[in-house]
Design a protein around this nucleic acid. Structure first.
Length: 321
DNA sequence: GACTAGGAATCTA
DNA sequence: TAGATTCCTAGTC
């Protein structure tokens, strides 16, 4: 799941030639964390709203390619996060760094008549759009909400707000949007967002816009990998933990495998894992004390246990597969 | 202080 | 009703 649809990734490279003052809005907040580090790979790019709300996801994200393409023809991710990256990521596929410096700088033709640079551009474009959709998909799973904001209940809206505030370090605005359902939220203008939340309203509106764009242009992406959290079934804690573990690029700094084959994992940031679980279950008072109690309930059921060599914050799935 | 372990009552889908 | 949450005491690191 999460792969970009042809409709999103198949945008002609000419679309990349945006006005020089086009703002960058990636919707991603990814802070780079190197190999061996406990954190997830995240590129912390300063969010700016889309140039216009009508811009689709692809157009919005293509602004970033334009920036990459225009600067020194150097295919290195730029932005605040990129400049602070100290080590290469441990998952190369997550890092769209492509060397387009063909020998002699010639514009060789790739299959299909595209220049190599255009070909690379499409690859990068496809990867970034895929990453955007993955991020939304992950949030959708963890929050147990649909991809389409229009369908959100007031409770879903609050979950999404909590999540977005957490992910993008925005001030808490939940109360300002109380009682609003997804339909009402989607109908609100950026100005109305600002009125309700002067500090982060514009950012929230931009994020919502990305969700709207993603759900309208990629309607089937959430169906490609149906799991417990998207099927309407209440998710179990052990499932939730596995979901986090399966997204090391997003949650590796919170929880990670020590030995995937044996199902041994370590909770690196107990407070954050508990917080995510609380958001997922709509339990704002959740903490690690309670979460760990739930984990211990699995001891009797043979789902999770402590490893043979017990370590703090280290647990083991009894059935790793 | 943070984590571990488990009992018990309560809540919730 | 099962699973999760909440609160608690006691012990370990």
């Amino acid at each position: 799941m999460g792969s970009a649809s042809p409709g999103l990734s198949g945008v002609p490279p000419s679309r990349l030639l945006l006005p020089p003052d086009t703002v960058l809005w990636t919707g991603l907040e990814k802070v780079a964390v190197g190999a061996g580090a406990t954190g997830p790979e995240r590129w912390d790019w300063s969010p700016s709203p889309p140039a216009t709300p009508e811009q689709g996801l692809s157009t919005v994200y293509l602004s970033y390619f334009d920036m990459l393409y225009s600067e020194d023809s150097s295919w290195v991710a730029k932005g605040p996060g990129a400049s602070t990256r100290e080590e290469p990521p441990d998952e190369p596929e997550q890092c769209p760094v492509i060397d387009s410096q063909a020998p002699g700088g010639s514009l060789d033709l790739a299959p299909g008549g595209l220049t190599l640079e255009e070909h690379s551009l499409e690859q990068v474009q496809s990867m970034v759009v895929g990453e955007v959709l993955k991020d939304i998909e992950t949030a959708c799973k963890l929050l147990n909400i649909t991809a389409d904001p229009v369908d959100w209940s007031p409770g879903n809206v609050q979950k999404w707000l909590l999540w977005t505030e957490h992910q993008y370090r925005l001030p808490s605005v939940g109360k300002a949007f109380q009682e609003l359902g997804g339909k009402e939220l989607c109908a609100m203008s950026e100005e109305q967002f600002r009125q309700r939340s002067p500090l982060g309203g514009d950012v929230l509106h931009a994020h919502l816009d990305i969700w709207k764009s993603a759900s309208t242009s990629e309607e089937s992406w959430t169906d490609s990998e149906v799991d417990s959290s998207c099927s309407g079934q209440p998710i179990h804690l052990w499932q939730f933990l596995k979901e986090l573990l399966l997204k090391p690029h997003s949650y590796g700094r919170f929880i990670r495998w020590l030995n995937k084959e044996k199902g041994i994992f370590k909770i690196e940031d107990s407070a954050q894992v508990a917080r995510l679980w609380g958001i997922r279950k709509n339990r704002p008072a959740m903490n690690y004390d309670k979460l760990s109690r739930s984990i211990r309930q699995y001891y009797k059921k043979g789902i999770i246990r402590k490893p043979d060599i017990s370590q703090r914050l280290v647990y083991q799935f009894v059935h790793p597969i």
